[in-house]
């Protein structure tokens, strides 16, 4: 199979208006990805499936990822020559910026016909609140049907063009999307003998004093 860079260039030539970005993966797995824009995603996906050199006929895995808004510190290092003639100094310039929150869908494609893969596709929403619509790839790969329903259910990404977009794991009347990082479950606290973390905080709220201890400390 051609490299991902070549593939990106080929897609860019075929779909000049499309914005295709190569996302590198720094881990040893080196599974790099192509980020597609929502407008052309389905056309590019169809091309990937039908192109004779690629034949990515199976979309194996569909995942959602939540990236809440976070502050990033960029460190730019510049080497400044010492005017006095000494050793050059390295100057660090720190800039803070807010990385906007977004939701991401990742598709892992494999070719059964040619036996290669994975080609990883990523689609990103505009934000995490109102611009959460992405094109569904279920018309291209049936395997995305339940998995996109799952992503809709757990992350709240709306897939346009999905034939049957309903909640799948949570029940119909459920309100929130539990896989979002900022999801907090309703306070249906039940007494637990060994509380930790969030449960401990809740236990303290429900049983203000004395704090519940699992067993009376026996004398040493």
């Amino acid at each position: 199979m051609e490299t991902l860079t070549q593939l990106r260039d080929r897609i860019a030539a075929l779909f000049p208006a499309a914005n295709v970005v190569l996302v590198t993966n720094p881990s040893p797995s080196a599974q790099h990805a192509l980020r597609l824009d929502a407008t052309h995603a389905r056309a590019i996906a169809t091309f990937l499936r039908d192109d004779p050199a690629l034949q990515l006929d199976q979309c194996t895995n569909v995942t959602g990822i939540d990236w809440p808004e976070k502050e990033v510190v960029d460190v730019a290092r510049t080497t400044v020559a010492d005017p006095a003639g000494g050793a050059p100094r390295v100057v660090e310039e720190k800039t803070r910026r807010i990385e906007p929150g977004r939701l991401e869908v990742v598709y892992h494609l494999y070719s059964i016909a040619l036996g290669h893969g994975p080609v990883v596709l990523r689609l990103v929403t505009g934000n995490r609140t109102d611009a959460v619509t992405l094109p569904s790839l279920t018309p291209v790969w049936r395997s995305a049907e339940f998995q996109e329903r799952e992503v809709y259910d757990l992350f709240g990404i709306v897939f346009e063009g999905h034939p049957d977009l309903r909640r799948i794991l949570m029940w119909d009347g459920f309100k929130d999307h539990p896989m979002r990082r900022d999801y907090r479950e309703p306070d249906d606290y039940e007494w637990e003998p060994t509380p930790h973390g969030d449960v401990l905080a809740k236990a303290k709220l429900h049983y203000p004093a004395p704090a519940p201890t699992p067993a009376a400390p026996s004398a040493p």
Binding site: E192, P193, T194, T213, P214, A215, P217, P220
Partner: peptide, 12 residues
Amino acid sequence: IYPAVFAIDTSV
């Protein structure tokens, strides 16, 4: 140091 309290919830 020794554990003044050491409890395991075997239902969990």
